[in-house]
């Protein structure tokens, strides 16, 4: 791809991020990059930045060892230390996905 038109060059969203009504509209308006649209998008981003706070949770849950360095309660026969961290893989993936979707319109430019 040799275009120099920046990150938004019409290829965005060709694989799978359709299905969200407002998004396309929003993008097309930005593609024109008229100053008011840009300003508008910037403001909206600030509003949705709060979602990123969710991403702190995995850091706390994973790095504070005393939270989970124990055997009981077991899940079946698996000690807490192991299943707790295993569960976090899923939780963290879900949080990441939530943040992705929640901030998508603003960032997809």
């Amino acid at each position: 791809m040799s275009t120099e038109s920046g990150p938004h060059d019409g290829r965005d969203g060709h694989d799978g991020d359709d299905g969200d009504d407002g998004a396309d509209d929003h993008k097309r308006r930005n593609a024109a990059t008229d100053p008011p649209a840009r300003y508008d998008a910037g403001r909206r981003t600030r509003g949705s930045r709060g979602w990123y706070v969710l991403l702190l949770a995995p850091f706390v849950g994973m790095l504070w060892v005393p939270l989970y360095n124990r055997v009981e309660p077991r899940a079946g026969s698996i000690p807490f230390f192991y299943w707790y961290q295993f569960v976090w893989i899923g939780v963290s993936a879900v949080l990441t996905a939530v943040v992705y979707f929640a901030t998508r319109n603003d960032a997809e430019r």
Partner: peptide, 13 residues
């Protein structure tokens, strides 16, 4: 395990 859990939130940002 925690390593691969926390790396992706960091990457997303």
């Amino acid at each position: 395990l925690p390593y691969t859990v926390i790396t992706y939130p960091f990457v997303l940002v």
